[in-house]
Amino acid sequence: MKLFLSVLALAVASASAFESVVPHKDAPLGSGSSIAGRITNGYPAYEGKVPYIVGLGFSSSSGGWWCGGSIIGNTWVVTAAHCTNNAESVTIYYGASWRLQAQYTHTVGSGNFRQHSNYNTNNLNNDISLINTPHVDFWSLVNKVELPTYNDRYNNYAGWWALASGWGRTSDDSTVSDYLNCVDQQIIENSQCSSVYGTDVITNDVICTATPDGKSTCAGDSGGPLVTHDGNRLVGVTSFVAANGCTAGLPDGFTRVTSYLDWIRDNTGISY
């Protein structure tokens, strides 16, 4: 994480008015460490509210970390590229409200990852990955979320309300909370977001939300879903927050799913 912050600081040094960003991947899961809590200033999700979310416990030779993901098909999960990057395997937790008390789990190796080939670790461009999973049947607690249709590819969704969910931290220095939480967020214009982070980070492939009253995603929410209230479509994959804190009131950043509909179709065969 320190290396990431150092490299990213260099990337935005030419525009010192811009904030740095940090990804939402949680702290390592190695011995003695714990998986951090929940979304900041959100609310608990009742059982079955977000049946499309999965918990992702990644492992590598250097340790492990926690992310979220979204079920988009019987054998596919979408998450953030900074979650799959350098991972050797992942355990997928299906149908959990309490983070590690899943209805069932599957573990797959990195050969099942489809990380975007143009993912950039410096500015988090193309921060999206797919995971090919064993087949899962859908029911009330485990179900897919639909992608936007091709007719929506030019919709910027500014002004729309959407639901983010995950097991991320309550605050930047929070104690652990294992329960799934949600937060309702309003999508904003990219121009509002680029004025904070710069155009190197905020491209047309990013979608941002406002975070009034500290209502935000946070560490541990990486890769999780941003789903519209109207139509229940997956429009964002949780990517980053301002380096000065989840509750600082600065925009949250997500990978814009409509920018990757062709890439998802080419890798999974899923399209609408």
Rank of each mutant, 00 (worst) to 15 (best):
L3T: 15
L3F: 14
F4E: 12
F4G: 12
L5E: 13
L5H: 11
V7L: 14
V7F: 13
V12W: 00
A15N: 14
S16G: 10
S20C: 15
S20G: 15
S20K: 14
P23N: 15
P23Q: 10
P23I: 08
H24I: 13
H24K: 13
K25D: 12
D26L: 11
G30Y: 08
G32C: 04
G37R: 01
I39S: 05
I39A: 07
T40N: 10
A45D: 05
I53G: 03
S59P: 04
S60D: 13
S61C: 12
S61E: 15
W65P: 01
W66N: 11
W66V: 09
C67K: 00
I71G: 09
W76Y: 09
V78M: 07
T79C: 10
T79R: 05
T84G: 08
T84K: 07
N85D: 15
A87V: 04
E88F: 09
S89G: 07
V90N: 01
T91C: 00
Y94S: 03
Y94W: 06
Y94I: 09
Q103G: 08
T105D: 05
T105S: 09
H106K: 15
T107P: 02
G109Y: 08
R114Y: 09
R114C: 03
R114V: 15
Q115Y: 07
N118T: 14
Y119P: 06
T121V: 11
T121Q: 13
N123L: 08
L124N: 00
I128E: 07
I128V: 12
S129T: 07
S129I: 00
N132G: 03
T133P: 01
T133G: 03
V136Q: 02
F138L: 06
W139D: 15
V142L: 01
N143D: 13
K144E: 03
K144D: 00
V145Y: 02
P148Q: 02
P148V: 04
Y150C: 15
N151I: 06
D152I: 12
D152K: 14
W161N: 14
A162G: 05
A162P: 05
L163N: 13
A164P: 02
W167P: 02
Y179T: 11
N181W: 10
V183T: 13
D184Q: 05
I187Q: 00
E189G: 06
S191P: 10
C193K: 03
C193V: 05
S195I: 08
Y197C: 01
T199M: 10
T199E: 06
D200Y: 12
T203A: 07
D205Y: 12
C208I: 08
C208T: 07
A210I: 09
A210W: 07
P212R: 06
P212N: 05
D213W: 14
G214Q: 10
G214R: 08
T217V: 12
G220E: 05
G220K: 05
G223T: 08
P225Q: 11
P225S: 11
L226S: 13
D230R: 15
D230K: 14
N232Q: 15
L234M: 05
V235W: 04
G236I: 04
T238L: 09
T238F: 07
T238N: 09
S239N: 08
F240A: 15
V241C: 03
G245F: 02
C246A: 08
C246S: 06
C246T: 04
L250V: 03
P251M: 10
G253N: 02
R256F: 02
R256D: 05
R256T: 06
T258M: 01
Y260A: 04
W263Y: 10
D266V: 02
D266W: 06
